[in-house]
Design a protein around this nucleic acid. Structure first.
Length: 445
RNA sequence: GGUCAGGUGGCUGAGUGGUUGAAAGCGCUGGAUUCGAAAUCCAGUAUAGGGGCAACUCUAUCGCGGGUUCGAAUCCCGCCCUGACUGCCA
């Protein structure tokens, strides 16, 4: 039995979405004025030149639109005449005009179908294109070209061979993959006792810290419509990475829900920056990662995460980005977990991001740093997709900038605590900051 | 989930097939008046897109999508949302 195959539902969902907001996905005027800038920027992240075919389509659309509008204007004018003629009892004049309108209607219908097709094509073209990297993002092909910006803390030296978190958890009898597999398959886990509590304690501490930084605690929907997923950039390209029901997608991150809170709205400037945080489960099918991190809790279909989202004005977003990085770092520092800050190169940037910092925590069993948070500035990329704007002045509505970051991934933080705080006998010291959240317990096991 | 009633501009609210992108009021902006202000008066006040150097002009939008019609805010269908009643249920 192959368990997971909800693709059909997903495709159906996606095709049924209304075609709203497609045209604004990228600044088409800016592309017309300076196509090279766009192609160059895309090239930096390995995307073929796109503007030629975009502009070609744009030309066709504008031409067709002009003709449609002309025909519509003619129809409207004639219709008004008909109304007048009818009122004045000039029946035959009205009939003559009706014939005229019928002609215009044929033109409108024919051109309209063509126009619709072209607009859809442009929409599909644009919606599948990633964000442009910021100018200062280091160039690179992939993960190996990311740049280390900072290192914090000293990896602990063990006088015994440190165990992997799943060995520790299973030995404690509080991390049970086998039982989870009986009901849900691989990449699920049952946590029990102190480890279940540790998961909650970590989330609670993170939430307390982030709300203390001015992020408003939010409890959003976990199931969202396709258009919300398109808004943040999960669709159309990554449908197979997500789970769906008959009409909803399960959020792969609270970024989707939190960012979409401002969709289709025009915010007053003084509401910015709007900072939100949420502790939610996240659901990912991990379609493309067969065989990677199959052991342990590093890569699960379901995990908890405390997410940070900020909606702000364009001129605020760089500062906002650094602030969110600081807020995420603060959690690792408070837990005294060694980590490093990476700046992603153009080749490793996510679909919607124009600049991203990753936080990687030290995992002794793997003798390496592993991603625990990813903090991205999406610029106006998502805002354009969901029509999220702010009032910059009278008659001056502009797209907001959106940022998101983990503050932090709870599951991976639990992994890091287990591995970094393990004792030779397999028990785990509770990080000092976490003791109050663990009901005073200073040790697990 | 079912039945019924609704969804109109920043807000209130008129409009049930024909110059209605939409009355009126409130709010807001500018101007007149005033020493200044209040009051009053006049004018302006949605969004997106096409064309134009510009003045300007055209198109679309009355929850969303589709249909009927020469013409739809107004009629029909589907969906979304709100309220009332009702069913089931954590």
């Amino acid at each position: 039995m192959t368990a997971r195959k909800p693709y059909r539902a997903q495709r159906r969902l996606y095709l049924f979405r209304p075609p709203a907001y497609g045209r604004a996905m990228f600044d088409i005027k800016a592309i017309r004025e300076n196509p090279k800038a766009f192609d160059d920027a895309w090239a930096r992240r390995g995307v073929e030149p796109q503007t030629a075919r975009i502009l070609e389509r744009d030309q066709l659309i504008r031409k067709a639109k002009g003709m449609v509008q002309e025909a519509e204007a003619a129809r409207n004018a004639a219709s008004k005449q008909i109304g007048l003629a009818m009122r004045e009892g000039r029946k035959d004049d009205a009939e003559k005009l009706k014939a005229e309108v019928a002609g215009a209607k044929n033109v409108i219908a024919a051109l309209g179908t063509q126009l619709e097709g072209e607009q859809r094509e442009l929409h599909d073209m644009l919606s599948g294109l990633p964000n442009l990297p910021a100018d200062d993002v280091p160039h690179g092909a992939g993960e190996e070209d990311n740049v280390e910006l900072a290192k914090w803390g000293e990896p602990r030296s063990f006088d015994f061979t440190p165990k992997a978190h799943d060995d520790l958890g299973e030995a404690l009898g509080q991390m049970d993959f086998e039982t989870a597999a009986k009901m849900s398959g691989s990449r699920f886990v049952v946590l029990r006792g102190q480890l279940a509590r540790l998961d909650r304690a970590l989330a609670a501490m993170m939430l307390d810290m982030q709300t203390g930084e001015g992020f408003e605690e939010t409890a959003p929907p976990l199931l969202v419509w396709p258009k919300a997923m398109e808004g943040t950039g999960q669709l159309p390209k990554f449908a197979e990475d997500s789970y769906s029901t008959a009409e909803h997608f399960l959020i792969p991150t609270a970024e989707v829900s939190l960012t979409n809170t401002v969709r289709e709205s025009i915010l007053p400037v003084d509401a910015l920056p709007k900072r939100m945080t949420a502790h939610t489960p996240c659901f990912r099918s991990e379609a493309g990662s067969a065989g990677r991190d199959t052991k342990g809790m590093i890569r699960q279909h379901q995990f908890n995460k405390v997410e940070l989202v900020s909606i702000c004005a364009p001129e605020q977003s760089d500062d906002e980005h650094k602030n969110m990085l600081r807020c995420a770092e603060a959690v690792l520092q408070r837990l005294e977990l060694p980590y490093r800050v990476m700046e992603l190169c153009t080749g490793d940037l996510g679909f919607g991001a124009r600049k991203t910092y990753d936080l990687e925590v030290w995992l002794p069993s793997q003798d390496t740093y592993r991603e625990i948070s990813s903090i991205s500035n999406c610029g106006d990329f998502q805002a354009r997709r969901m029509a999220a704007r702010y009032k910059a002045g009278e008659k001056d509505n502009r797209f907001v900038h959106t940022l998101n970051g983990s503050g932090l991934a709870v599951g991976r933080t639990l992994v890091a605590v287990l591995e970094n705080y393990q004792r030779e006998d397999g028990r785990i010291d509770v990080p000092k900051a976490l003791v109050p959240y663990m009901g005073g317990a200073e040790i697990i096991g």
